[in-house]
Design a protein around this nucleic acid. Structure first.
Lengths: 213, 213
DNA sequence: GTCTATAATTAGATAGAC
DNA sequence: GTCTATCTAATTATAGAC
């Protein structure tokens, strides 16, 4: 998957910057796709933000659609690494504590990378090839693991007895919303949604409601 | 505001269907703008869904931008009527019960009109004239009233002691998410997000977390 | 690998008949 | 009020020089 063009250089992990221009294009694409939507993000605007000319996108990616896919794949890979890294540091820790720290990690990632949930809410409102890709390649595995963890906690009375599917949408809705709507939040509340203290307060708000104090 | 062209017919409230074609255009615009974003919704696609030809949109609305504005103004007016109607039926009822029933009303409205939060998450991710219109004409008044109610409940210990700004984003994030992402929810959970029972279960989930069982 | 120039398509908006 | 026909501008993608 995500085949790269052959290169004289060694092939690294897809997150390693083997090609600076290519990576600047991917970063610019992520920003613009997430803010302006797939149709609203023109390849010219992406090229401009990346500091290259527009036809260069078609050198590195065969189409706008393939550029979108490469960009979201990279972002979900970063989320996966973030969650995996957290979980590996929790071998032998009890389930309630693990759940709490995983939710912390998830919200911190969403605050630092609001592009992820911006793109999900963009593309999962209607069926289409991009929603298909997101759900089947990235979201479903995360959903299954999250729901089975939440169900276990709920059945054991650690958290409120709420159907796990609903808890999933409560957490994925409440956690990132303040950061997805960062510019609105800034104007509405005066809070700066990139501030560590603000992020921490939001993590605390969600965890208090789910786990109690 | 929202000046209508002069007409030989009586002028009714903007929600009354004085002109069937105009109202079909507004409804189609709402669906397509909310699903595909402002740029992704072409005027041709809106016309097709409304069952008219594309130049007719420019007869009823001077530009695509003005069509967008008329569509969202109508939707926020419907939300306002829904919340006002609820509140008028609650004269003399105590504050905690009022808050609970207002949140119920809000989530039910979001489930029946997912276009509202689809458009908010679309347009409030970056500064621009459309975010400006949403925030200053529609969102800020609702935000102010909601936050002052939540702050009062929090200070009196009726709900958890969480800063009201964060509670606002928790509720507006957790409440509509399942319905905003309805098509994803259907594939991921098998639940039908337009079912009364599913909506009611989500309302219960959010209210349980905010107010306790 | 990155550029300039441009082709092919599609967008929103206007003109004018009925 | 609604249509057909069409204009102008902007979009993605390709060709070909360096």
């Amino acid at each position: 998957m995500a085949a790269r063009r052959s290169s004289s250089r060694d092939e690294h992990s897809s997150t390693t910057h083997a090609d600076p221009a290519r990576d600047r294009i991917l970063a610019a694409a992520l920003d613009l796709f997430s803010e302006r939507s797939f149709d609203g993000a023109t390849t010219r605007a992406i090229a401009e933000r990346a500091g290259v000319t527009q036809p260069l996108l078609n050198y590195h990616f065969s189409s706008k659609d393939e550029l979108w896919r490469a960009a979201v794949d990279g972002l979900f890979e970063a989320l996966g690494e973030s969650l995996r890294g957290r979980q590996e540091g929790l071998r032998g820790v009890d389930e309630p504590t693990t759940a709490r720290l995983m939710i912390r990690e998830f919200i911190w990632f969403s605050a630092r990378n609001p592009q992820l949930h911006r793109i999900i809410t963009q593309e999962c409102k209607f069926d289409g090839p991009r929603m298909d890709h997101l759900v089947e390649h990235h979201i479903r595995p995360l959903y299954e693991r999250t729901v089975s963890l939440l169900r276990s906690l709920s059945e054991r009375g650690v958290i409120a007895r709420i159907p796990a599917e609903h808890l999933y949408y409560v957490i994925t809705g409440a956690g990132p919303s303040m950061f997805v709507l960062g510019p609105e939040c800034r104007r509405l509340t005066g809070l700066e949604p990139t501030d560590d203290a603000v992020i921490e307060a939001h993590v605390e708000a969600v965890c208090t409601l789910i786990f109690g104090s």
